[in-house]
Computed example of a mutant assay.
Amino acid sequence: MKIKLFVLYGGKSVEHEISLRTAFTVLGSIDRDKFDVYPIYITQQEGAWCCSGMQEHARTTIEELVMEPEFTSATESMGSVLLRYVSGEGKKVALPLLHGSNGEDGTVQGLMELLDIPYVGNGVLSAALTLDKVVSKQLLSQAGIRQTDHISFLMEQWNEEGHSLLNRMEKSLGYPVYVKPATLGSSIGISRCEDRAALMQGIEHALRFDRKIVVECEVAGREIQVAVMGNERPLASLPGEFIHRHRFFDFESKYMDKELVMSIPAELPSYTMERIREYAIQAYRVLCCSGLARVDFFLDSDGEIYLNEINALPGFTGTSMYPVMWERTNGTAYSELIEKLIDYAFMRHADRLTVQYAR
Score class of each variant (00 low, 15 high):
84 R>G: 00
84 R>M: 04
84 R>E: 09
85 Y>F: 13
85 Y>E: 02
86 V>R: 00
86 V>C: 09
88 G>K: 15
88 G>F: 03
88 G>Y: 04
88 G>D: 13
88 G>R: 14
90 G>Q: 05
90 G>M: 05
92 K>L: 04
92 K>S: 08
92 K>R: 11
92 K>D: 01
92 K>G: 05
92 K>H: 02
93 V>C: 15
94 A>T: 00
94 A>Y: 01
95 L>Q: 02
95 L>E: 02
96 P>L: 07
98 L>W: 06
98 L>E: 10
98 L>S: 10
99 H>A: 11
100 G>Y: 09
101 S>L: 14
101 S>Y: 06
101 S>Q: 15
103 G>D: 08
103 G>V: 11
103 G>K: 08
104 E>A: 07
104 E>G: 04
105 D>C: 10
105 D>S: 09
106 G>A: 10
106 G>V: 09
106 G>T: 09
107 T>E: 05
107 T>R: 06
108 V>Y: 12
109 Q>A: 15
111 L>M: 15
111 L>A: 07
112 M>I: 08
112 M>E: 09
112 M>C: 13
113 E>I: 03
113 E>P: 00
115 L>D: 05
115 L>K: 03
115 L>I: 06
116 D>P: 02
116 D>G: 01
116 D>E: 13
117 I>K: 02
117 I>V: 10
117 I>D: 01
118 P>E: 07
119 Y>K: 03
120 V>G: 03
120 V>D: 03
121 G>C: 10
121 G>F: 10
121 G>P: 11
121 G>E: 07
122 N>Q: 13
122 N>G: 05
122 N>A: 14
122 N>R: 05
122 N>S: 15
123 G>A: 07
124 V>K: 04
124 V>P: 08
124 V>R: 05
125 L>Q: 12
125 L>D: 12
125 L>G: 04
125 L>E: 14
126 S>C: 14
126 S>Y: 14
126 S>G: 14
126 S>K: 12
127 A>T: 14
127 A>M: 11
128 A>V: 10
129 L>A: 04
129 L>Q: 04
130 T>A: 15
131 L>S: 07
131 L>R: 03
131 L>I: 15
132 D>Q: 13
132 D>S: 12
133 K>F: 07
133 K>M: 08
134 V>F: 05
134 V>T: 13
136 S>Q: 01
136 S>E: 00
136 S>K: 00
136 S>T: 03
